[in-house]
Simulated scan of single mutants.
Amino acid sequence: MPDSFETDLFRAAAGCLAAREPAEKMRLTREAATAFAEGRLQPTGNDPVTPIDEPGRPEQPILVAPRNLAQRGLGTDEGRAALVHAVAHIEFNAVNLAWDAVYRFRDMPAGFYADWVSVAADEARHFAMLEERLAELGHRYGDFPAHNGLWEMAKKTADSCLNRMALVPRVLEARGLDVTPGMMARLQSTGDTRTVAILDIILAEEVAHVAAGSRWFEWCCQRAGIDPAETFDTLLRTHCRGVVRGPFNRTARLAAGFSVEEMARLDTLVA
């Protein structure tokens, strides 16, 4: 790792965010996570927090509106590669989101940074698995268009850790808990057991990532003296109308820290 990263976790996070090429971003993420686990990085730096901007990303993929993404069937290698690419793009963004949480929110307990550094490392490993699978299907990351919805929500929540925890891991990333089992079933029907095995690993670990969002959302609500379920419902109705869709993977969401009351409120939102 560069010398400037050796003790300052916030500076390391900024470096991981700024890296443009996937291989460099994932390498820096692995090294930063290792250094943090070994106690060589601490959240004690005092560099000013810069306004949120676009993270480092390669020139490809081209970013388009979600409605402009082509829908491909899974009966061909091309269609399966497009699906793998879409998930890889989510994981690439998730690496940036985890590091931005570490970098941006400076007044949090030590456990917050431990959680999101660990998430960044997991997401980098997920991206690597998907990138390898793309290569097996004759493609690479950047070959298909993608959308920027995750990062757009990061921009909207840059000034509030409470809002970020509510609306990124507990809304956008939690959507993966709902849709991944269906993707796995469709891929299984085509005989693509290799991709199914990767998605099975990702699904299990994403439960813990959404749970981290739930944990720190509740912590932020307690600090603010507000009710988590009511606050989550208000944020959804203010910022996410048309974004939240069912059906929900209730088992996974409950395991990821959603309360029974929150699930009931989600049901009324999509009814």
Rank of each mutant, 00 (worst) to 15 (best):
C240T: 14
P181A: 11
G45C: 01
F217I: 04
I202H: 02
M263C: 10
G56D: 15
D159W: 05
A146Y: 09
T251H: 10
A37V: 13
Y113R: 03
T193M: 08
L134W: 12
L187C: 09
H139G: 02
L83V: 05
R80W: 07
T44I: 12
W116K: 05
G257K: 07
G142D: 13
R245Q: 12
F105M: 08
R106A: 03
V117G: 09
A166R: 06
D53F: 07
R253P: 06
T193I: 05
F105D: 08
R57T: 09
P169L: 02
G56I: 09
P48R: 12
T157K: 11
M26F: 04
E6H: 13
S259D: 01
A146I: 03
F5I: 01
Q222G: 07
L28G: 08
L69Q: 00
Q60E: 15
N68D: 14
A86G: 11
W116Q: 06
R57L: 07
P228H: 06
E262T: 01
R215G: 08
R67K: 07
A98S: 15
C220N: 12
D53M: 15
G15F: 11
D227N: 13
E123D: 09
F248M: 01
I226T: 08
T7S: 14
R250H: 03
G191Y: 10
R175H: 10
A158D: 14
R30A: 14
G257R: 04
T34C: 06
D192M: 01
L9P: 09
D159C: 06
S189D: 11
L17P: 11
A37F: 12
A229L: 05
A12V: 10
A98M: 07
G138Q: 08
D227R: 05
A101P: 04
F10Y: 13
A65Y: 02
E206M: 07
N93L: 12
